[in-house]
Every structure is written in C-alpha cells, then in structure tokens.
Amino acid sequence: MSAIMIGQDKFKISEDEVAKRELKVIKVSDDVIQVQEEIHGIIALVGATSTVNIKKEELKNLIKVVKEEFGWTDICE
C-alpha cells in the first residue's frame, strides 16, 4: 500500500530558502502504522533520535485514515 498524505506545509528557514514538509501514513501490518515526516530543502537531522510534529488537523486526518482506509474501527476521536 502506498503512503497517504495527511498534511503538508512550507516554512522559511533562511532569507533565501523555504523548506517543504509532508506528513504521510502507511499501514505496516494489521495493527501497526508508520508516520513519516519528510522535509525537503534542508539537510536532515543527524543522530539517533527522530521526532514527528503533528498538527491538530493532521491528527484528525490520521484518525480518519486509520478508521476509513485501514479498518481500525476501535479508534476514538
């Protein structure tokens, strides 16, 4: 299954550069999902820790996708 985009935006990182952010979700198995945050336009983080920032609207979209697309009917809003 391909990734489903649940959010995207752009933000200024310098006078001349704007980064593009995309938040996607993929079903890994029946009870596991993977949330991916892709940032284009800047050098990615280096290290062992990774975080994903999720906006309120993106969380609502995530809940909708896992219910409707992945069949997780026991997820509350």
Results as ranks from 00 to 15, higher is better:
69 E>S: 12
38 E>H: 11
18 V>C: 07
28 V>M: 10
58 E>K: 03
47 G>S: 05
15 E>T: 08
55 K>P: 00
73 T>N: 15
57 E>Y: 07
7 G>Y: 01
61 N>T: 03
62 L>S: 00
44 A>V: 08
24 K>A: 05
38 E>P: 02
8 Q>A: 09
55 K>N: 05
18 V>W: 09
19 A>K: 03
2 S>G: 09
26 I>K: 13
40 H>Q: 10
60 K>Q: 05
30 D>R: 04
65 V>H: 01
24 K>W: 12
50 S>W: 08
43 I>D: 12
63 I>E: 03
20 K>L: 09
77 E>G: 07
34 Q>M: 14
31 D>A: 07
71 G>A: 06
1 M>D: 14
60 K>D: 06
30 D>Q: 10
76 C>I: 12
39 I>T: 13
70 F>Y: 15
21 R>I: 03
29 S>E: 05
32 V>W: 04
23 L>P: 00
52 V>S: 07
39 I>Q: 05
13 I>S: 08
18 V>N: 09
32 V>A: 05
1 M>G: 14
65 V>P: 01
42 I>V: 13
33 I>T: 06
46 V>W: 08
15 E>D: 06
32 V>D: 04
31 D>H: 11
42 I>K: 09
19 A>I: 03
24 K>S: 09
62 L>N: 02
15 E>W: 05
29 S>L: 01
12 K>Q: 12
67 K>L: 00
71 G>M: 06
66 V>H: 02
63 I>F: 01
41 G>P: 04
45 L>N: 15
25 V>K: 00
76 C>G: 13
50 S>R: 06
10 K>P: 01
16 D>E: 13
43 I>V: 12
43 I>M: 08
65 V>F: 00
68 E>G: 00
36 Q>W: 08
47 G>E: 05
73 T>I: 08
34 Q>R: 15
44 A>K: 14
70 F>T: 03
69 E>A: 07
58 E>T: 04
48 A>V: 14
11 F>N: 10
37 E>W: 05
40 H>C: 06
23 L>I: 12
62 L>K: 02
2 S>V: 07
22 E>K: 14
40 H>G: 04
58 E>L: 03
8 Q>W: 06
64 K>Y: 04
72 W>L: 03
18 V>E: 11
75 I>C: 11
51 T>Y: 12
10 K>F: 09
39 I>N: 06
73 T>D: 11
51 T>K: 13
